[in-house]
Nucleic acid binder design. Structure first.
Lengths: 249, 249
DNA sequence: AGGCGTCTGTAACCTATGTTACAGAAATCA
DNA sequence: TGATTTCTGTAACATAGGTTACAGACGCCT
């Protein structure tokens, strides 16, 4: 749980920034440009934003932030992968989000006067984060109408994402969750022979259930001839059943 | 499920607004002033906002909006009480929020390009709503920095509220939920002899469990001598136990 | 005071999911 | 290639909470 936080960009002006640092700076700016929040933002503004921030590096499976921890910053995942988790006192885990760089975190809470991290953030692979003081960032936001609009859209999307997740988790049983997941895959991949985009173990975490319970459901659906499995591939034999069960009964 | 929507304030300028309508207009403005979102907003701007809106009246227990329904408006509860609900295909209910006028609804989603209502909205008592076109409102927002700041704080608070709820519902068992609820009451009322602020029936809906299940838990806690009940009053005998169980095991 | 709707306690029974454990398969690494 | 780690299937058993049903208590209306 080592946290190597190095404020390499603390100095405004350029006379003591080495060539290597400028290169890194440029790389980070390029990464941010791929974030849809910064789609239309000028290079200069992006540089200002990055310069005002602080880089944090983590190895795999490290805890980056804890749910309930004070959040006075905006956090970007610049490189690597991380997950957002609910973990309770019994060690039960519910995976809220699997994030791949470049990705903005904690975006929806920064305007609150008592902003807290809503989830634990944990790396999966080695990762690099950029932390930006929230007041500084809000100043940037208020200066650039495009950025503000992008950001607000992002916040609303985050809200819709979390309420959807909430509904899925709390109002559906496990069979419905599985059918819902398979339907989503089938839509994305435009075929009835889908390839799972995560392991069953991770899927169980996303559903907030135990792995054997999830395994049971897949096996039952296979026994009923509704799907057929081969490694990571799922052949949806009875697409109608899967689709209907996901939404209705 | 009657929906009596009457656009009484569609006309700008005053020559054909009767005295009664002006009175009503003023009343609504006063109501909005009590909303913390509009705390520092000028009377004139508030009038513009109200005038741009549309009034909807509902009797008790009516469905006002449905989860998933397109949301191209901002909705205020001006008078009455309403609840936000998740309802699934089996008729299972989870009450997300109990709202009392004056209260702003659907505030967090309006910036999204595909904004949907995140919950069903249902009246409890006879109620009056004010609906404002979201693009119109966003224009108002962008003109008034104070309003924008208030609004953004509101959005972040809504996000924190829903993620907290999510955690409570999905990561705690029923005993923990009850202990958590009693702890909250005890803090609010600054006593160990608390008065429940809703019926057990409603509480069961808020916890997303059946009433008998909730009843069972209260009875068990009483049997163990941890609480003692008398109507709506709960005497917390073992405050330590309740507090600890709410958070930890 | 009587009547009606809502709230509450209670009980028997059911079911989905959790728990634990183990062994085989697959993927990754060295 | 073999060694390790991670993933997966499977099974026996435990348990929290759901389901249904009924009767008594409470509050409110007229």
């Amino acid at each position: 749980m080592k946290q190597e936080a190095c404020p390499i960009y603390g100095i405004r002006g350029g006379h003591d920034i080495t060539g290597e640092k400028i290169l890194r700076l440029e790389k980070f700016i390029e990464i941010l440009k791929d974030c849809d929040v910064f789609a239309d933002v000028s290079h200069d503004l992006l540089r200002d934003i990055v310069i005002s921030g602080r880089i944090e590096k983590y190895s795999s499976k490290e805890l980056v932030r804890r749910r309930g921890q004070n959040c006075d910053e905006l956090l970007f995942l610049l490189q690597g992968e991380a997950v957002g988790l609910f973990v309770n006192s019994e060690g039960q885990v519910l995976q809220i989000d699997h994030m791949v760089a470049p990705k903005l975190l904690a975006s929806a809470v920064i305007f609150s006067s008592e902003a807290k991290y809503p989830v634990d953030v944990e790396t999966i692979t080695e990762s690099v984060f950029l932390s930006i003081d929230k007041d500084t960032f809000i100043d940037f936001l208020m200066q650039d109408k495009d950025l503000l609009r992008n950001y607000l859209r992002h916040v609303s999307d985050a809200f819709l994402f979390i309420t959807d997740k909430f509904y899925e988790i709390s109002m559906k049983n496990l069979v419905q969750k599985v059918c819902s997941y398979l339907t989503k895959l089938s839509q994305e991949q435009k075929t009835v022979e889908v390839t799972m985009d995560m392991t069953k173990e991770e899927l169980a975490r996303e559903f907030g259930v135990t792995r054997p319970a999830l395994s049971r459901v897949f096996l039952e659906l296979e026994k009923l001839g509704i799907i057929q499995m081969k490694g990571k591939k799922v052949n949806i034999k009875n697409h109608r059943y899967i689709r209907d069960y996901a939404e209705f009964h």
